[in-house]
Amino acid sequence: MGQMTDLAAVLIVRNEARCLARCLASVKHWVDKVVVVDTGSTDGTVSIALAAGAQVHHLAWPDDFAAARNYALECADAAWNLIIDADEWIEQGGAALRAFCEGGERLGRLCVISHDDTDPSSPQEVRSWITRLIPRGARFTGRIHEQVDSTLPRHDLPVLIGHDGYLTAQRIGKQSRNLPLLLAELAAHPDDAYIQFQLGKDAESYGQHVQACEWYAKALASTPRAPWRHDLVVRHLHCLGQTGRLDEALQLAEAEIPDYAASPDLFFVLGNLCLDSAMIDPTHAISHWIPRAIKAWQTCLAIGERPDLEGSVTGRGSHLAQHNLQTLQDGLASVS
């Protein structure tokens, strides 16, 4: 590859021997170099990186993801930088990276598909659009869930990044690390709705639905019209349902439908809330709640998949909604 628009894959790592080789193999055909900053690995991470041809640098962990990312960017010293984590890999669309770099200064958002088994009975693939392709000089801010601090325009690329860091086996070791950083960030920025949202997600991922609702409510009360608001609303609805606050959840869903009338995720969760309501209000189940649930899931199918929506879950506009409809209809047939 030519060096006029040299492109580096840039990683910060620590004890990633489980998955690092997969990541590096997925990026090597699309970049000019790979720069790895190790923050104190005690397993085979460094050896794996070196064997894959990566440049390896070392940094004592600064308790600040943005600081570590910015150090790695300095080490890379590239015209363009693909930011990727060791528990991620390019699934599709790698060729679009180079083409984007030749189109002038801007920021590229990639679709990260996170495999999530928080609910073992219903594993999910959650899609997030994250700024990951950045030009020289762009830098990060934030101790955790760091963001690119830039006024450059952001464009979505047809690049899919797989991510398995939210699987239970990987998530267990992150709670003691993430929560203190989130709370420290909140202490520094007490009115930051994005940090409140991330605290809610952290609580939800460990089944702490009551606490998640508290954080989501705070974030929703002050959140800007940001792309992640869709994810916030849908997650809040789900957690309200999980804590039995069905009336509050249904009111919120109705209030948000005008903004998210084309969201299969919102209608999917609305269908679940209506079915839960039928269970606790059997008198009105057949006449009201079940028809509402059916209508909500049919709306999901009419809308179809919306991978462009932040936090959209694969299948809510297709097979997951169809499964719920079929299961409910089979149940109704068996008692008729």
Rank of each mutant, 00 (worst) to 15 (best):
L237W: 10
C300M: 07
A262T: 07
H238E: 14
P190M: 10
D265L: 12
R225G: 04
Q211F: 12
A226W: 15
Q211G: 10
L266D: 03
H238D: 14
V233T: 04
Q298W: 03
H288S: 08
Q198M: 14
A219W: 03
P258F: 14
I280L: 08
D231W: 15
K295P: 00
A253H: 01
D308M: 08
A188E: 09
C274M: 14
A193F: 11
L252V: 06
D202C: 03
L237F: 12
H189I: 01
P291R: 15
M279A: 15
L186F: 07
Y260L: 08
L246I: 07
D191M: 07
E305P: 01
H209C: 04
A293N: 10
L250V: 02
T243W: 08
W215A: 11
A278D: 11
E310H: 15
K295Y: 08
A261Q: 13
A221D: 15
S277V: 01
E256S: 09
G304Y: 08
Q242P: 00
D281K: 01
F268W: 15
D231C: 12
Y260F: 15
A285Q: 06
E305K: 09
L186A: 13
Q196H: 13
V233P: 03
L232K: 05
D202R: 01
V234N: 15
L270D: 11
T243V: 15
V269C: 11
W289N: 02
H238Y: 13
A212K: 02
A187H: 05
Q242M: 15
T299P: 02
A221K: 12
H238C: 03
C239A: 10
D281I: 00
A188L: 04
L309K: 06
T243D: 05
Y206F: 15
E248N: 06
R245T: 05
H189F: 03
V210Q: 07
Q196K: 13
Q196P: 00
L220I: 02
M279W: 04
A203Y: 08
G311V: 05
T223D: 13
T283M: 10
P227C: 04
A203H: 05
D191A: 09
D281Y: 01
L250S: 03
H209A: 07
D231Q: 14
L301P: 00
S205R: 11
E305C: 08
I257K: 03
P282N: 13
I303L: 06
D281T: 01
L232S: 05
L246F: 06
T299S: 09
L232W: 03
N272G: 10
V269H: 14
Q198F: 09
P264Q: 04
D247S: 13
G304L: 08
A226C: 12
A193N: 07
K295S: 14
P264G: 02
D202F: 08
Y216S: 10
